[in-house]
Amino acid sequence: MKDIKAKILFNEEIGLSYFKMELRAPEIAQIAQPGQFVQVRCTNTLDPLLRRPFSVHRVRSLQSIEILYEIVGRGTEILAKRKEGEFIDVLGPLGNGFTIPSEVEGRTPILIAGGIGVAPLVFLAEKLREIRNPKSKIQIIVLLGAKTKESILCEKDFKKIGAEVHIATDDGTRGYNGFVSELFKRILRTTHHASRITIYACGPHPMLREIAEISKEKNLDCQVSVEEKMACGIGTCLGCAVKVIRRGGEEFIYKLACKDGPVFDAEEIIWD
């Protein structure tokens, strides 16, 4: 991990208070893995004080990284106003990303996103596509959940790499009318070789819990990327605790979203 001053190459709204920022950060771009994140200092003033964590959304030519963010508070409001050419403090890459099984070719990855949770999954899909064996082309299935049709993110990015994209909207304005977890259940019914499926999910807590439960029921490998409030991002503040199952002895232990995660095996997490 490196703490660098990165030049902002791009920072624009891509729809309904969602923004994309590209940062020149070769030190981070060259080693970042899908599911890892960066800590960005939105402003160098004392308020807001803490950095904000963002998943690495994409890596471009090993020179820059992209983050995808939604304006949810003062930090992201300030971030949205930052201009191209300005420099910004970026610490990363941080945490443990998704684990890609070594026998990836025979498996069907299903990527499930809820809202802004799509951010790390584009990087993951690109990586999965990159490492495929051309002879045994893997089908990447992507399920995108959004509030309404205008807030569907990254559909084109997934289609560009040949993924099969399914959409669910809460208000039914596009695709399946309902939650992405319900769409996931339907997709499973029509997907063959269920045992060869790996689930990668990122989104709000209730969605992840649903996905984890369904995966457990169907005996599917499932990795989830969780989001917790954090201060440091490097394991010193112990703020971003995640309750996980302890095998033997204690009832549970706390792991850290920033250091042990943000990606966890769904079965490990205690969803309360």
Partner: peptide, 20 residues
């Protein structure tokens, strides 16, 4: 000590609250 329940961190004006 396992530590306290979540959330443990909250940002405030020019500061932060913690209950680790």
């Amino acid at each position: 000590r396992p530590g306290n329940i979540m959330p443990r961190i909250c940002e405030t004006a020019s500061g932060m609250l913690n209950s680790i």
